[in-house]
Amino acid sequence: MVAATLSDTPSATGTPRPLALARWLFAVAALVLVMVAVGGITRLTESGLSITHWSPVSGTLPPLSEADWQTEFDLYKQTGEYRNVTGPAGMDLAAFKFIFFWEWFHRLLGRVIGLAFAVPLAWFWLRGAIPAGYKPRLLALLALGGLQGAFGWFMVRSGLGAEMTDVSHFWLSIHLLTAFFTLGGLVWTALDLRQLDASGRGKPARFTGLTFVVAVILFLQLLLGAWVAGLNAGLASNTWPLMNGRLVPEANWSQGIWWTFTHDPFWLHFLHRWWAWVAVAALIVMARKVKPLDRRASIAIHSAFGIQILLGIATVLTGVDLWLAVAHQVVGALLVGAFAWGAHVLGRRS
């Protein structure tokens, strides 16, 4: 107990620097936002299975010779995606290099984010600059980053089977939602630290009952969005508000309710587009509570879900245009950040 108390207390020569830590965490959150964008491009260009192995050190560099490129291409040719999708479409080495770049850059950015978090964390720790009570939370955020990398590899591995043509949408949702959760945790912790700097003795904010309910509703919408992405269910309809002339689409119920709610692209597309309005209603209620306390946070919530709805409709109408779909995913991440901001405002304590 004594050792634990000492380990969480700034050193005698160190001075807590909550504002510096807050700025650092906001910068890492911005990198995570870029990571979400690159991950969206990687998914939408079908690049995720182009690297069939996980090499934490040697994988930092791309292939450096034509022989190395051919080796990577040969490994990709063994995947079900190449045999059934890209190979019959006539993919050559030049096209493979394009998809390889996005997966390689996605993994490289993950390493950069890991260093951008771990190195400053060690520096702040050794300098005694971390306020009391924040070390466990920062270590938890570091662990989340490590889990994100592991989940990414499990996701890729799920699509490498000889009969697979894509990754598991379950693993894709775990990978994406972990990124969103990490982003929210970074924003929340940075706001706690900024409040501590402003008051000198502010207590960490806490979740209220309202924000918990909104969080559950928003989580379900993000989960549905991830499954829609993983199953390419956005292509199930390019009309709005009706789906192929119907309000409720024809879904496959022959394999049971559970399968339909977790696998049927038409049904998941339908749920995602209409549960969005439940999320909007919940966020409006939350933003109205936030407005008297922090008008900027309320505006951020309204702006994020408004733009997100418009981008979602545009993505459907364009048959999942690449850049609109990427923007839809990025604004989804911004919505998570805005929600974390608003929830923090409601949960602040003097």
Rank of each mutant, 00 (worst) to 15 (best):
A297M: 00
A30V: 13
G40A: 07
L172K: 10
H302W: 13
W123M: 13
W275Q: 10
V326S: 06
A118I: 15
L220Y: 13
W104E: 03
W123P: 01
T71M: 10
V112I: 09
L176G: 10
S254A: 13
T178R: 07
P120E: 14
M155E: 00
V32C: 06
G133C: 04
R157S: 15
A179C: 04
P131W: 00
V85L: 08
F154N: 08
A343G: 04
L220W: 12
G14R: 14
L139Q: 13
V345A: 09
L271N: 00
M91H: 10
L334P: 11
I113K: 09
W275F: 11
W267A: 07
A325K: 02
V213K: 01
G59E: 02
E250I: 07
F261D: 02
G39E: 08
W153M: 08
I313F: 08
G202K: 13
L242V: 07
L242K: 00
W125G: 11
A22C: 12
T42M: 07
P241V: 04
H269S: 11
W275N: 12
L44F: 01
R107Y: 00
G342Q: 02
G48Q: 07
F124I: 05
L196K: 02
M91V: 06
L346S: 05
L6G: 14
G184E: 06
E81D: 07
A30Y: 00
D197E: 14
G209T: 07
T262W: 01
V248N: 06
N252T: 05
D264Q: 03
I113Q: 08
L247C: 03
F73E: 03
Q255E: 14
E163Q: 15
L283A: 12
W267I: 03
L224Y: 09
P62W: 10
S65N: 00
S237K: 05
W323V: 05
M155N: 02
R23H: 14
W102A: 06
A132W: 10
L49H: 05
A251K: 04
L310W: 12
V85R: 04
W104M: 12
L115W: 15
H175F: 00
F261N: 03
V214A: 04
V331S: 07
E250Y: 06
W227Q: 06
F180G: 10
I113S: 13
R43F: 10
F96I: 01
W277Y: 12
V285D: 00
A132M: 12
F339H: 11
T15N: 11
N232E: 12
A27W: 10
W240P: 10
S254N: 10
A314T: 06
K289P: 09
V248P: 01
I41A: 15
A233Y: 00
T52Q: 09
L61E: 12
P136Y: 03
L335A: 12
L322D: 04
I257S: 09
L138P: 05
